[in-house]
Design a binder for these strands. Structure first.
Length: 262
DNA sequence: AATCCTAGCAACCGCCGCAGG
DNA sequence: ACCTGCGGCGGTTGCTAGGAT
């Protein structure tokens, strides 16, 4: 007999999480800690697979998550680590506090890969790309034999495409990089604390996330927290909890009011 | 203004390694 | 030593928003 699935999938919900589900999961994890993901959905009253709960928590709901674009320092670190570790996203993520493997993986696939290619660097090997883009095949029956050059056997970096100006520092293309300071704006203090939030064990509530796939209204928490835009919400804002300190993280386009503290 | 295309990201799937029995 | 179950990881998919035509 084969391996049992992580959960019997009949009757389980899939797809984007709702605000209610988020709240249930957050309440449960903060109240009970992380243990036995398989049991979490049942105990938390969720019609989800335990795996799904873990993923949602680690990738999205964890209080210590940073949101927003990777800073260029983070990006550079990701590239360096990728050169050493390859696609070991979780290992790479462990060097970037507040970032998840999924986030880094996505960022790599959507941003960094392109940038490296633009710079004439093979994102897989981190070596210069082999020179010519193949000549435009004009329906030629007998295509010229490919150069058959193995990338690693090529010691001298060929100049890539015309536009790839050698980056003086790092990443000079048109995508504006965010500075960490632009991402994290703690409230109520002049002195910026280190961008890392305390571990979730202390339950310092960090919040401010926006999700494109699920739009939430903040009405449920309007008494205590206000958001400038309706589609932004804080999962924590729904909770009837007493947090000793509130540390808000700002998404790049999220805007929190000063009086939003619970 | 409408439609199509592309990029970005959240979530799912299947496999793997490890620990406990 | 082997088997089973769980958690974790990496690859992939599918949906959505924004931009281009």
């Amino acid at each position: 007999m084969g391996r049992q699935p992580c959960c019997d999938k009949v009757g389980l919900k899939k797809g984007p999480w709702t605000a209610e589900e988020d709240q249930k999961l957050i309440s449960f994890i903060l109240g009970n800690g992380q243990c036995c993901w398989r049991a979490v959905p049942k105990l938390a009253g969720l019609l989800r697979c335990g795996k799904s709960c873990r993923l949602r928590w680690t990738n999205y709901l964890r209080p210590d998550l940073k949101r927003g674009l990777l800073s260029d320092a983070e990006e550079k670190l990701v590239i360096d680590l990728h050169a050493q570790l390859g696609n070991r996203w979780s290992k790479i993520a462990s060097h970037l506090p507040g970032r998840t493997d999924n986030e880094i993986k996505n960022h790599w696939n959507t941003h960094i890969k392109k940038k490296l290619k633009k710079m004439g660097i093979d994102p897989l090997t981190h070596k210069p790309l082999p020179p010519p883009p193949p000549p435009p095949p004009e329906k030629n029956e007998q295509s010229p034999p490919p150069t058959a050059g193995s990338p690693e056997a090529r010691p001298s970096p060929p100049p890539p495409e015309e536009k790839s100006a050698p980056a003086p520092g790092f990443c000079t293309d048109e995508v504006p990089m965010m500075h960490p300071d632009e991402i994290m704006v703690p409230l109520g203090g002049d002195e910026l604390p280190p961008p890392l939030l305390p571990a979730a064990t202390t339950c310092a509530a960090a919040a401010a996330v926006s999700t494109p796939t699920t739009s939430y209204s903040t009405s449920a928490s309007s008494s205590s927290c206000c958001l400038s835009r309706e589609e932004e919400y804080s999962p924590f804002a729904f909770m009837d909890m007493d947090f000793p300190e509130i540390v808000f993280q700002m998404d790049d386009d999220a805007r929190w009011h000063d009086d939003c503290l619970l």
